[in-house]
């Protein structure tokens, strides 16, 4: 096979893996948007906050230590213990649930029945607030995150493809693990929504608030649940991206990449988020590979947005979104 085709295959594979991570972030948006009509601008910052909290807990860091030291003149930074990764993830999940409850209790609970734009503005405020809290709690330095996920080139695939084509594909172990975990998470969520009592209630709330109330569903509980799940998804995304490129502020910007994914897949569709993520992931990698040279490179920065724009012109509801039909 010609080298160009092999390169293209390798790029496509890498694109698929990146796409899974985009899908993961987009999924967090879809969950909240479906159940409450809120476009959660803070989803990216939630991923940052979750990753920071995870690192902080693992390293036994004292939360708000700068604040405490400045106020009381003490000099504490660490508890002096290390928390194993798995336990730390469970604890961080707990923190995300508490966060979900707080968001519902102190912010969204007061804005029920408001215009979507107002809810959206509230989540922008929430994003900045959470960013500040994250800094205040855990500091603003770039942190490395290592929960024990394998990293580096996958030797098996390298050797296998070398034998097959005479050219070894470079696939990162982390990308493979991330894809598998993301796929499991998505499958789990779909099963949860489809077959459990709470999942059924979640779908009911997403469909019709009034009807949901009439069968005894507490909207408040469902919203806390949905924000908790979105928090957990943010944590998983935070772990993947944090392991890959360090836990730092730019982590919160991955949320921006989720926007074109959502425009492609539709804001209300879980399969849409996945397919949209994959298309964007593969599309931007292939585009860079094929045409990047002609355009001076760095096309990955804008390709997704241009694709989304084109999509908006042709099919504004996205691939899987609900079609908006206005009866006259």
């Amino acid at each position: 096979m010609p080298d160009q085709v092999l390169f293209a295959m390798e790029v496509t594979l890498n694109g698929l893996m990146a796409g899974v991570l985009y899908a993961l972030v987009a999924l967090g948006f879809v969950l909240i948007f479906k159940a409450s009509g809120i476009f959660n601008f803070a989803q990216g910052v939630m991923a940052l906050f979750a990753a920071m909290t995870l690192v902080g807990i693992m390293e036994g860091q004292v939360p708000f230590s700068h604040l405490i030291n400045a106020t009381f003149g003490t000099d504490i930074h660490h508890f002096g213990w290390q928390v194993p990764a798995l336990l730390a993830i469970v604890l961080t999940t707990g923190v995300m649930v508490v966060l979900a409850w707080c968001v519902q209790r102190f912010v969204m609970g007061h804005l029920v029945n408001q215009e979507p734009i107002i809810l959206f503005m509230a989540t922008i405020g929430l994003a900045y607030f959470l960013e500040g809290v994250s800094d205040l709690m855990w500091g603003s330095e770039i942190r490395t995150l290592d929960v024990g996920l394998p990293q580096g080139i996958n030797e098996t695939i390298d050797a296998f493809t070398y034998d097959l084509f005479g050219y070894g594909f470079f696939i990162d172990n982390l990308d493979i693990v991330a894809s598998v975990i993301a796929a499991l998470l998505v499958a789990g969520l779909v099963v949860f929504a489809q077959y459990t009592k709470q999942g059924r209630a979640m779908r009911a709330v997403a469909d019709d608030h009034q009807a949901a109330l009439s069968v005894g569903i507490s909207l408040n509980f469902i919203w806390v649940l949905v924000w908790s799940i979105a928090g957990f998804v943010a944590l998983v995304a935070g772990i993947m991206w944090g392991t890959k490129s360090g836990v730092q502020f730019s982590l919160s910007l991955i949320a921006l990449k989720a926007l074109p994914v959502l425009m492609l897949g539709g804001f209300t569709s879980i399969p849409g988020a996945i397919v949209g993520g994959l298309i964007i992931g593969v599309g931007e990698k292939l585009f860079e590979f094929l045409l990047g040279g002609l355009m001076g490179g760095a096309t990955e920065n804008w390709f997704a947005y241009v694709l989304a724009l084109l999509f908006l012109l042709v099919r504004p509801q996205g691939l899987f979104g609900e079609k908006i039909i206005e009866r006259v």
Binding site: A201, R203, A204, D207, A211, A212, V215
Partner: peptide
Amino acid sequence: ALFEGMSVLDNVMTGRLT
């Protein structure tokens, strides 16, 4: 006020939630 996107059976099942 039904759950339009869900099947008839699923709709009736939401009645059992309580």
